[in-house]
Computed example of a mutant assay.
Amino acid sequence: MSDRAKSFFWYELMTNDLEAAEAFYTSVVGWTAEPFDAPGAPPYLVVKAGDRGVGGLMAFPEEIRDSGLPPAWMGYIEADDVDAVTASVKASGGSVHREPADIPDVGRFSVVADPQGAVFMLLHGNGPELPPAPMDAPSHIGWRELYADDWESALEFYSGQFGWTGDEAIDMGEMGTYQLFAVNGEQNGGMMNRPPQMPVPCWQFYFNVPAIDAAARRVTDGGGTVIFGPEEVPGGQWVVNCIDPQGAFFGLVAPVR
Rank of each mutant, 00 (worst) to 15 (best):
W164L: 07
Q161N: 06
A148Y: 01
S153P: 01
Y147T: 09
Y147N: 11
L155C: 03
G166I: 01
V112M: 05
M121P: 00
Y147F: 15
Q161T: 10
S153A: 11
D114K: 01
L123R: 02
M121Q: 10
D167W: 09
E145Y: 13
M135D: 12
G166F: 07
F120M: 00
D167A: 15
S159Y: 05
W143I: 09
E156D: 14
G163Y: 04
G163V: 03
V119G: 03
I141K: 01
P132L: 08
E156T: 15
A137K: 09
A137W: 01
M121D: 01
P131K: 09
D149Y: 05
L155R: 04
A118I: 01
Y158I: 11
P131M: 09
S139G: 00
G125R: 14
W164M: 05
D114C: 10
D149M: 12
G125L: 06
G125C: 08
W164K: 08
A137C: 07
D136A: 15
P128D: 11
F162E: 08
V119C: 07
D136P: 07
G127I: 05
P132A: 13
G166L: 09
P134S: 02
P134K: 04
P132D: 12
Y158W: 14
I141F: 12
E156M: 05
E152P: 09
S139K: 13
P132R: 10
W151V: 13
S159H: 08
L146P: 14
N126R: 13
E156A: 14
G166N: 14
L122V: 02
W151G: 08
H140R: 11
A137Y: 11
A133W: 02
N126V: 01
Q116F: 03
M121E: 04
Y147M: 15
M121I: 00
G166W: 04
G127Q: 07
P128C: 12
F157K: 01
Q116T: 07
